[in-house]
Design a protein around this nucleic acid. Structure first.
Lengths: 124, 124
DNA sequence: ATTATATGATTACAAGTGTAATCTAGTTCG
DNA sequence: CGAACTAGATTACACTTGTAATCATATAAT
């Protein structure tokens, strides 16, 4: 997987919301959060195509874009990369940092407990 | 906090191992893992100084570097930044990704359980 | 005193990034 | 038909990053 920059990620993220999507669809979705010129978004779309993160098909005199990588696998990849750089590859120290920083909510705790329970059921 | 690049982080990380440290100390520490020219390391040290991530004091005709930011706060900051971009700020979905990807070890699980127990004792 | 050495400062330079503006070629409006 | 409008392609441009090489200066060695 080629590196995807932060701005490119925002575009890709908007595409994941629903596809195939035209450039204008993406621009509209992004306008809710970002203050980007439409030319900027189109540049980022082109760069994502060149990086083979997305593809397009021509139809009705316009391009319809779709992702070539799944959100799930991308975010797992990115998470692992960060965790390997910062925490020698283990996830618990990251969570520990959040805990020390008082950044865990009751909801986080409950979800973690559920995950652990499932893991133990599956992995004995 | 200014952005710290990946290469800069590796240098900063070596400095966190022990300081004050001279450029040569850092170069030696890094040689164990990286294959960087000493000029490269010195460039990165200068950039870290300019970014106010580290400082130095002159002594014996050489600079003695020390971090200006703590590892703990830096890694928490970076983790939060990633988690807010990828998971709307909540840590559990990240762990869930690891779980689905079969990337959790028994040790991870045990540490997470201990964290949760402590959290509940403190926040119960 | 002159030369070699070591250290930091300055300069280099291509690729990637953020952030667009301009160019080009169909398409639609008058 | 010619003008205006679209959508994508190409170009722009400064800043960052990776990865050093060269310059300047102060000691150390001869």
């Amino acid at each position: 997987m080629t590196e995807i920059s932060k701005a490119e990620f925002d575009v890709l993220n908007a595409l994941w919301e629903g596809y195939p999507a035209s450039a204008n669809d993406i621009i509209e979705r992004l306008n809710k959060q970002k203050d980007w010129h439409d030319k900027t978004v189109k540049t980022l779309l082109s760069r994502l195509v060149k990086k083979q993160a997305i593809k397009f098909e021509s139809q009705d005199r316009r391009y319809w874009y779709s992702p070539l990588i799944e959100r799930e696998s991308y975010v797992v990849h990115e998470s692992k990369s960060l965790i390997s750089r910062l925490f020698e590859g283990r996830v618990a120290p990251l969570v520990a940092g959040f805990a020390r920083d008082d950044s865990l909510s009751r909801q986080d705790i409950n979800e973690l407990k559920a995950l652990i329970e499932k893991w133990e059921k599956d992995n004995g």
